[in-house]
Amino acid sequence: MPNKTKILIVDDHQLIIEGILSYLKHIDNLEIETTNSCDDAFAKIKVAQTDVPFQILFTDLSFDNIDETSKIDGGESLIKLIRKEEIPIKVGVITGHSETNRIFNVIRNLEPSAYLLKGKCNTNELNFAIQKMLTDEVYYTHEIHQKLLKRALIEIQMDEVAIQILKELPNHPKISNLEGVIKKDDGSLLKIRTIESKLAKLRTDLQANNNTDLVLKAKEMGVLD
Rank of each mutant, 00 (worst) to 15 (best):
D64E: 14
D64W: 06
N65T: 08
I66F: 13
D67R: 07
E68Y: 13
E68K: 12
S70P: 09
D73W: 10
D73G: 04
D73R: 06
D73Q: 07
G74R: 03
G75N: 08
E76D: 14
E76P: 13
S77Y: 10
L78E: 03
L78F: 10
I79F: 08
K80F: 03
L81C: 00
L81A: 00
L81V: 00
R83C: 00
E85S: 00
I87H: 01
I87A: 00
P88F: 00
P88Y: 02
P88E: 01
I89R: 04
K90H: 08
K90W: 03
V91T: 10
V91K: 03
V91Y: 02
V91P: 04
G92M: 00
G92C: 03
G92Q: 01
V93Y: 01
I94Y: 01
I94M: 00
G96R: 01
G96H: 04
H97A: 07
H97D: 12
E99V: 05
R102E: 13
I103D: 08
F104Y: 14
N105M: 11
V106I: 15
V106Q: 04
V106A: 07
I107S: 08
I107Y: 12
R108G: 09
R108Q: 14
L110A: 10
L110G: 11
L110V: 08
P112N: 01
A114D: 02
Y115T: 01
L117R: 00
G119S: 00
G119E: 09
K120I: 01
K120P: 04
C121H: 09
N122Y: 09
N124F: 13
E125G: 02
L126G: 02
N127Y: 09
N127G: 10
A129L: 05
I130W: 10
I130H: 06
Q131S: 10
K132N: 14
K132L: 06
M133G: 07
L134G: 05
D136W: 09
D136I: 01
D136Q: 11
E137I: 00
E137D: 14
V138E: 12
V138W: 06
Y139M: 02
Y140H: 08
Y140P: 07
T141H: 10
T141E: 12
H142C: 01
E143R: 07
I144W: 13
H145M: 10
L148W: 14
L149T: 11
K150F: 12
K150H: 15
K150D: 13
R151Y: 15
A152E: 15
I154K: 03
E155V: 06
E155A: 15
E155G: 11
E155Y: 10
I156R: 11
Q157S: 14
D159W: 08
V161F: 04
A162L: 07
A162H: 09
I163A: 08
I163V: 15
L166M: 11
L166W: 13
E168Y: 15
E168I: 05
H172L: 07
P173I: 03
K174A: 13
I175N: 12
S176H: 11
S176F: 12
N177S: 14
N177E: 15
N177M: 12
N177R: 09
G180I: 06
V181C: 04
V181G: 05
I182T: 03
I182Q: 06
I182S: 04
I182K: 05
K184N: 13
D185W: 04
G187S: 07
S188A: 03
S188E: 11
L189R: 02
L190C: 02
I192Y: 10
I192R: 03
R193Y: 13
T194A: 15
I195F: 11
I195E: 11
I195C: 09
E196R: 15
E196P: 12
